[in-house]
């Protein structure tokens, strides 16, 4: 608890997008997340790091209520997006997820054409007024996903036919197409080779101009490269949160230091 308060002081008074207070997550009887307090900033890349099973992915999935799809999962505490409680009973998770997009560990393009993959979100949310509007959204999203030049001549081909790195950028573009405010990324590069990883990281860097990006990663180098803020999770606790530079050069908590220097992991 004390650590979290320390961490919060480090947050400067920029636009706070997500405000989480005393978040607890249970899977059946066992508790996966304990008393997490964190503020996630707009137009910033925030990295969640920590050893396997520390709860960083679970916490990420709380932010757009993806945990609702797991029947035994229970979330307590207070999470606010733009100061609105996202777990309030009147909130429709579908509406929430349109504003908080998600990219998954393994690229999961739908078995449809590239165009239909991107157009899926705008169609279900009714974002386009007509066909040319939709075309624009698709082109814009693919450009933002840094994929336009590679696929512009074959939009009708199945998305599953792309290479792994292209598929993941397609999934990012697909998430961007619904015009979210926050983009959650769950280890987006773990299934990719180094070249594709570099492309995706570059993309994340560009995305932060328009979105708040939260990325879960196993790689501390990646966290150091792409993020401005870093949160270190350990055994379901948020141990330390602050500026990335600060955490990596001058960690406050001994556990953070051990993890960064490779003693726990």
């Amino acid at each position: 608890m004390k650590d979290n308060l320390e961490g919060r002081k480090l947050v400067d008074q920029m636009d706070v997008k997500f405000k989480a207070r005393d978040v607890q997550v249970f899977y059946g009887e066992s508790q996966a997340i304990k008393d997490v307090n964190v503020d996630i900033l707009d137009k910033t890349v925030t990295a969640f790091i920590g050893p396997s099973g520390c709860g960083k992915t679970t916490f990420l999935r709380c932010l757009n209520r993806m945990n609702d799809t797991i029947p035994i999962c229970r979330v307590e505490g207070d999470i606010r997006l733009d100061d609105e409680d996202i777990y309030a009973p009147e909130v429709d998770p579908v509406q929430l997820r349109a504003r908080v997009g998600m990219v998954f560990q393994k690229p999961n393009p739908f078995p449809k054409s590239i165009y239909d993959n991107i157009a899926y979100g705008p169609r279900i949310h009714g974002l386009a007024r007509n066909k040319s509007d939709l075309d624009d959204i698709v082109e814009d999203s693919l450009r933002r996903g840094a994929l336009w030049d590679e696929v512009k001549d074959r939009l009708g081909e199945p998305g599953t036919g792309l290479s792994g790195g292209q598929q993941q950028r397609l999934c990012i573009a697909r998430a961007v197409a619904t015009a979210p405010e926050v983009l959650l990324m769950d280890e987006p590069c773990s299934a990719l080779d180094p070249i594709a990883t570099a492309q995706v990281e570059e993309l994340i860097d560009e995305l932060k101009q328009n979105f708040s990006v939260v990325i879960v990663t196993h790689s501390m180098q990646q966290a150091a490269r792409v993020s401005q803020k870093t949160a270190f999770f350990h055994l379901g606790n948020l141990v330390e949160y602050g500026d990335t530079d600060h955490i990596f050069t001058n960690p406050v908590d001994p556990r953070t230091e051990s993890y960064i220097t490779g003693r726990i992991g």
């Binding site: 799809t69 579908v94 997820r97 279900i124 619904t178």
Partner: peptide
Amino acid sequence: PQAMRDGSYGLGATQSE
């Protein structure tokens, strides 16, 4: 695969969609 469902829910689709 479950990943298909996750992908769709993650974009804010309802279950029937």
